[in-house]
Simulated assay, not measured.
Amino acid sequence: MIELGIMFGLMGVTAVALIVKLLRRNRTENADGLLIEQASRVLARNDRVTYSSTAVHNSSPTVRDHYRP
């Protein structure tokens, strides 16, 4: 029973520490960091669409493409 109390106590302390860490993060003074982050998200989304499994494996074979499963 003591072990359960210790386990739940440690989980609670960890949760409180994570909440405090998130609330004390530094905020940006200007929007430059937010604009960079937004551009990175847009680029990552475009890459996920361009290089997805469907886009890569369902392309039409070319003249040089001799192997086609």
Rank of each mutant, 00 (worst) to 15 (best):
Y67L: 06
N30Q: 04
S52T: 07
Q38M: 12
K21T: 10
I6A: 13
L18G: 00
T28F: 12
S52L: 06
E29Y: 07
P61I: 08
R48S: 04
N58W: 11
S53K: 04
P61A: 09
M1S: 15
Q38D: 10
A31L: 12
M1W: 10
I36Y: 05
I2D: 14
A15C: 05
S60D: 02
A31C: 03
R27M: 06
R64N: 07
S59K: 04
V56W: 00
L23H: 03
V20L: 04
D32H: 11
I36E: 11
R48E: 01
N26W: 06
V16K: 02
M11Q: 03
L18V: 15
T62R: 05
R48K: 14
V20M: 03
A17N: 14
I6L: 08
I6Q: 06
E37I: 11
T28W: 08
E3A: 09
E37A: 08
A39K: 08
M7H: 12
R27P: 05
L22N: 02
N46F: 06
V16W: 02
F8I: 13
L43G: 02
T28Y: 09
V63L: 08
T62L: 13
A17L: 13
M11K: 03
P61S: 06
R68W: 14
I36D: 01
G5C: 13
V13L: 15
I6Y: 06
N46T: 05
S53N: 14
G9I: 09
V16I: 14
R48L: 08
L10S: 07
L35T: 06
D65G: 01
D65R: 04
L43E: 01
R64M: 15
I36C: 01
G33E: 14
G9K: 04
A39R: 13
F8L: 13
V20W: 02
V20F: 00
R25K: 08
L35R: 14
D65K: 01
R64I: 10
K21W: 12
D65E: 15
P61Q: 03
Y67D: 07
Y67C: 11
R25I: 09
V42C: 06
T28N: 10
K21M: 10
V42G: 00
V56E: 01
R41K: 15
I36F: 03
R45D: 02
M7P: 00
T62Y: 04
A15K: 03
F8M: 15
R64W: 11
N58C: 15
A17K: 06
R48I: 11
Y67K: 11
L22C: 09
A31W: 11
S60E: 05
M7S: 14
S40E: 15
S52N: 09
L43Q: 09
I2C: 13
L10K: 09
L34K: 07
N30Y: 15
R68V: 12
V16C: 01
G5K: 11
D65F: 01
N26R: 08
A39P: 02
F8R: 15
V13S: 10
A55M: 13
L4M: 14
A15P: 04
K21N: 04
G5W: 06
T14H: 09
D32N: 08
V20E: 00
T14R: 05
A31F: 11
D65A: 01
